[in-house]
Design a protein around this nucleic acid. Sequence first.
DNA 1: GATAGGGCTTCCCACAATGGCAAGGTCAAG
DNA 2: CTTGACCTTGCCATTGTGGGAAGCCCTATC
Lengths: 138, 138
Amino acid sequence: MNIGEAARASGVSAKMIRYYESIGLVPEAARTQSGYRTYGNTEVQILRFIRRGRDLGFPVETINTLLALWRDRSRHSADVKRLALDHVSELERKITEMQAMADTLRHLAHTCAGDGRPDCPILDDLGGMAGKASASCC
Amino acid sequence: MNIGEAARASGVSAKMIRYYESIGLVPEAARTQSGYRTYGNTEVQILRFIRRGRDLGFPVETINTLLALWRDRSRHSADVKRLALDHVSELERKITEMQAMADTLRHLAHTCAGDGRPDCPILDDLGGMAGKASASCC
DNA sequence: GATAGGGCTTCCCACAATGGCAAGGTCAAG
DNA sequence: CTTGACCTTGCCATTGTGGGAAGCCCTATC
């Protein structure tokens, strides 16, 4: 199977497959005489694993660890679970952060007329003029 | 005021001030004879505006537009409001995406014993073996 | 006046993960 | 043999930030 076919079969672009190989996330693929990479079912399965991990937002570095655990028949599921829950915490942290941004902006936008006049509480806030009359810079 | 002092006064690192200048987000600073950048209150105010915009998650490109509107006394607040609400939409999109990831992972982690045994629904899911017995790669 | 230390300058490198392009080799079908 | 689709490597761009090196500048202290 060529890289293009492996890409189609795994959902990982050929570009990314080469990249993952270059950073050592997947082992170097076997090559034909002419230099084409070749893939089998095992490799495609690994690529699918990576793809799924990326879809769940795991950083590549963590996927590397997860792959190692996947290969390790004597792994402790506790190690996998901890990686997953750490990632959940990280996601929650970012979600909370973005929700605070969105809440602030929704509030500001709510108090903004949004018409043809220049007065705008959003710009007032950004300009550090919150609560004061709408200002222009400089 | 030197760049370090301006950084302290605005909350934007000296490094980033130079970067913002290089991409044209802030005008080129005046220089002393020896080449040091100098800043006044106006410049610090602009930097604070940028800092606040970044804290609200606006991309630099959008902050550029917001700065232009800030300077434009004949602006329409509708334009500012639209930028803000578009950004809220973008934040919501990302939040929804990350919440789906977190929900999936919480569910998987919940069904994972997290002990010394190797069986792990999380790895099963990543390996495309959802619902089947815990597998090891290759 | 000399020296030390801290601040400033520019320039380059790195990150994470992905896309795109270009120049060239390869393979299979017509 | 030609054509078109595919593969190869390599370099550039993204977004926004940090780090560091080499060298100049300024001020304070001895």
